[in-house]
C-alpha cells in the first residue's frame, strides 16, 4: 500500500523531483568549484608583500607566497642605498615575516624590495620623528 502511494507521488511529481536533482547537482558542482577558486593557491600564481604594522614606524614585513616560485630575494634600502639583503625560501601557501630594525632612521625613506622569478615588488615608509 505504502509502496503504491510512494509510486503515485513519484509519478505525479517526477518533473519536480528530476529538476530538483539537476539543481542540486549543479549547486554542488558550482559550490565546489567556487570553494577551489577561493583557495589562495589552487591554480594561482601570485604573491604579496606587506608591512606587519601599516601605521607605525615598524618595518617588519611579510612575504605571502601563492606562486610556483619559492625563492625570494629581499633588499632593504635606506633612501637610495642598499642597507642589507637576504634570501628566503617560502613554499606555495606559506608566508614569512622578516624583521627589520627601525631604530635611528628618522626622516629616512626605507624601501623594501622583493624579487622572485623576475617579478619584483616594493613597499616603503618614511620613518616619522613624531
Amino acid at each position: 500500500m505504502l509502496n503504491k502511494i510512494n509510486k503515485k507521488i513519484i509519478r505525479q511529481n517526477i518533473l519536480v523531483f528530476i529538476l530538483s536533482f539537476f539543481i542540486l547537482i549543479s549547486f554542488f558542482y558550482l559550490a565546489l568549484l567556487e570553494k577551489k577558486q577561493q583557495d589562495l593557491d589552487w591554480q594561482k600564481n601570485w604573491w604579496s608583500l606587506y608591512f606587519n604594522s601599516p601605521k607605525g614606524n615598524g618595518l617588519d614585513f611579510t612575504i605571502e607566497n601563492h606562486s610556483e616560485s619559492e625563492n625570494f630575494h629581499w633588499e632593504v634600502y635606506l633612501e637610495k642605498s642598499k642597507s642589507y639583503e637576504g634570501n628566503s625560501t617560502i613554499p606555495k601557501g606559506d608566508k614569512k615575516s622578516i624583521l627589520v630594525n627601525s631604530l635611528g632612521l628618522n626622516d629616512k625613506k626605507v624601501v623594501i624590495k622583493v624579487t622572485s622569478n623576475d617579478k619584483n615588488k616594493e613597499i616603503y615608509k618614511i620613518i616619522s620623528t613624531k
Binding site: 604579496s48 608583500l49 608591512f51 601599516p54 616594493e122 613597499i123
Partner: peptide
C-alpha cells in the same frame, strides 16, 4: 610625495597610507 607610504603590494592591488 613623501606623505604617502606604500604598505601593501601585490600584482593587482597596492595600498598607500597617508601620514598626518
Amino acid at each position: 610625495n613623501r606623505e604617502f607610504w606604500q604598505i601593501y603590494s601585490s600584482d593587482e592591488i597596492g595600498i598607500f597610507y597617508k601620514t598626518d
